[in-house]
């Protein structure tokens, strides 16, 4: 087994391609059953994709604070994509929560957490990644504190090329 470890670590570090996070395209279903593909959203502009769950209070705060940013810049091509991580316990409440809050940004289900894993998600939520139009990961946010929305807006503006 040591050989496997050696081989993998050797491949990992000598590949010379080490990056902090890796872009990976996906198609997930939204609350209405429509397919949402990340690469198609990126054709319009940058995407802030955030992994969240209904039982996560900071995730709800992030949505509340990022929603105005989405409303402000959506016509410039920006998308806020909320990727739901609720498990079988609470997934039934997702649509009613989003509709009750009158949020209009796309919300998709990743119940089996395959996309979360592909983006190196662990236990922390919210976990947000801002992806540029050229599919480059521009920034990563783990957790949410009051005031983080200011930095997020600055990053979105920079991604859109707005000064």
């Amino acid at each position: 087994m040591k050989k496997v470890v050696f081989l993998f670590v050797f491949t990992l570090f000598l590949s010379g391609f080490l990056k902090s996070q890796t872009y990976s395209d996906f198609t997930l279903q939204d609350l209405e059953g429509n397919d949402v593909t990340l690469s198609k959203l990126l054709e319009k502009g940058p995407v802030l994709m955030s992994f969240w769950a209904t039982w996560c209070s900071p995730c709800k705060e992030e949505m509340k604070k990022v929603n105005p940013i989405y409303e402000k810049y959506k016509d410039s091509g920006f998308t806020y994509l909320a990727i739901n991580q609720d498990n079988q316990k609470s997934v039934s409440k997702v649509k009613s929560y989003i509709d009750a809050q009158s949020y209009k940004f796309p919300v998709v289900f990743d119940t089996d957490k395959r996309v979360f894993e592909a983006y190196s998600g662990k236990d922390e939520m919210p976990y947000a990644l801002l992806i540029g139009k050229n599919k480059e990961i521009l920034s990563v946010h783990t957790g949410f504190k009051t005031g983080d929305e200011v930095k997020i807006e600055e990053e979105v503006k920079a991604a859109l090329g707005i000064k």
Binding site: S92, K93, K95, S96, Y97, I98, D99, A100, S102
Partner: peptide, 15 residues
């Protein structure tokens, strides 16, 4: 089983 009804401002879920 779950049954939910939702519209802007209101969400109801019965499990």
């Amino acid at each position: 089983s779950s049954l939910s009804y939702s519209k802007s401002g209101l969400g109801v879920t019965l499990e």
